[in-house]
């Protein structure tokens, strides 16, 4: 055996609760991120990502509390992202039991943050998330959930992020996100060939073959999705069995 490809459900969190009308009949409280995390972990998810989208004053405290209850409940790794902009922010989350943190806009605004975090906590727990969109045949990095374009090119930025000490890249194609038409495999495969740290594919998952394609054609190390799992369009066990049948190495 060798290292397996990872399946990562992503949970959007607002004020300590999951958002997007999540449709789980067998959960007491579908808005409770801890219950959902437990369910995914039992279904065979390899990791989880919690993305905090709250905008309140108390957000840091609420998120830290959530991390603590997730860490005490589940026994698989998880990443926390959203609004992280300092060594202190990361210290609190890791101390509360998060395995990795994901940074996005704050890294673009101040790239030295990546060096500081990798130097303080080690590269292995620093995920840099990159949202990009194809404009005039160029992949351009965007901020604020894809709303604000930057001058950065995806591939240049990815290379820089790696050299500054990121441990993983979470690449979301804004062109594919929400389409359910598949991942941006061409860009992913180019990234994977240029970069020697793991790449997590995000944006575009709609059916099982999309995952197969992103691992085989896109050469991704992990695939992240939200709604297809939340709405039970794809079951994690079914997905992993079909991936195995297609020759993708997964943990079953």
């Amino acid at each position: 055996m060798a290292l397996t490809k990872r399946i990562i459900p992503c949970l959007d969190i607002k004020n300590g609760r999951t958002v997007k009308g999540i449709n789980f009949i067998n959960l007491r409280d579908a808005g409770d991120p801890v219950e959902l995390a437990k369910l995914y972990s039992e279904e065979g998810a390899d990791e989880l990502v919690f993305l905090d989208i709250s905008a309140t004053e108390e957000r840091r405290k609420t998120l830290a509390d959530l991390v603590l209850s997730v860490a005490s409940t589940i026994n698989i790794p998880f990443t926390v992202g959203g609004g992280i902009s300092s060594v202190q922010d990361v210290a609190v989350l890791l101390q509360n039991g998060a395995d990795k943190v994901s940074i996005n806009s704050s890294a673009v605004k101040r790239p030295d943050l990546i060096n500081e975090l990798a130097g303080t906590f080690g590269s292995q727990c620093i995920v840099v998330a990159i949202d990009a969109k194809k404009i005039n045949d160029q992949w351009i990095v965007h901020l604020v959930g894809g709303k604000v374009p930057t001058k950065l090119n995806l591939f240049d930025w990815a290379k820089e992020v790696e050299s500054r000490g990121a441990g993983e890249i979470l690449f979301t194609s804004m062109d594919n996100d929400g389409t359910k038409d598949g991942f941006a495999n061409e860009a992913l495969s180019k990234l994977s060939e240029m970069i020697n740290i793991p790449i997590i594919a995000s944006g575009g998952a709609g059916k099982i073959t999309h995952f197969t394609d992103t691992f085989i054609k896109g050469k991704a190390d992990a695939a992240l999705a939200a709604s297809v799992f939340h709405f039970k369009e794809i079951g994690i066990q079914t997905l992993k069995k079909e991936l195995a049948t297609a020759g993708v190495s997964v943990r079953l």
Binding site: L3, T4, Q124, A222
Partner: peptide, 15 residues
């Protein structure tokens, strides 16, 4: 070696 992705991150088997 840089022939593989570094760090190794994920689930691997023990034997």
């Amino acid at each position: 070696s840089s022939q593989v992705k570094v760090p190794q991150i994920g689930w691997n088997t023990i034997s």
